[in-house]
């Protein structure tokens, strides 16, 4: 298999990898870069568990050819927390009980993160639409929706305090 060099920005840092051009971004992240927070639920773009942000847009990493990310920004779940801090959105997920088995959670969080970046004050309908490509079998989505709205509210408060 032919490998090629790919330069891209991964979670804010420049990265160069040599990888099979025909492989998927998902396999690059999980298999080669050891970023196991991106989950694989179907490998066919049908569940959203492997959602990552490509230039700030949620995409299914399993459907993106690795070579396509040349020059682009890729953001995975690992970017949102440090060893002792988590993103307020993640706090809201925990607080509202939006995490059960947790397998859909990284993808779900990233879909919600992208939504809030583009639309800081979404309606419940917009939240549902934004997470409609992320299947969750545990929660019934209600707690996820509440978590995203809770995070939006926190953001509101934070910005009004500024």
């Amino acid at each position: 298999m032919k490998k090629q060099a790919i330069n891209f920005e991964l979670n804010g840092e420049p990265v160069e990898v040599f990888t099979e051009a025909s492989g998927s971004l998902l396999h690059l992240l999980r298999g080669q870069l050891g970023l196991l927070g991106t989950k694989e639920g179907c490998g066919a773009g049908e569940c959203g568990a492997c959602t990552v942000l490509l230039d700030n847009q949620p995409v299914n990493a399993c459907l993106v050819p690795a070579a396509k990310i040349e020059g682009k920004q890729v953001q995975t779940i690992e970017s949102l927390s440090t060893s002792n801090t988590v993103h307020p959105l993640q706090e809201s997920f925990v607080k509202k009980g939006a995490v059960q088995c947790g397998f859909c959670t990284p993808g779900m969080v990233l879909s919600a993160y992208a939504l809030l970046k583009a639309n800081p004050d979404p309606t419940p309908g917009e939240v549902k639409e934004a997470i409609s490509g992320n299947l969750c079998r545990c929660s019934g989505y209600k707690q996820v929706e509440e978590a995203v709205l809770d995070a939006a509210e926190k953001k509101d408060q934070a910005s009004s305090e500024d």
């Binding site: 196991l36 927070g37 991106t38 989950k39 995975t76 779940i77 690992e78 949102l80 927390s81 988590v86 993640q90 997920f93 925990v94 995490v99 088995c101 947790g102 397998f103 959670t105 990284p106 969080v109």
Partner: peptide, 12 residues
């Protein structure tokens, strides 16, 4: 464990 899950660190 919920924190490991929400940060993508939980090992499945």
């Amino acid at each position: 464990e919920v924190w490991a899950k929400v940060t993508g660190k939980a090992v499945y």
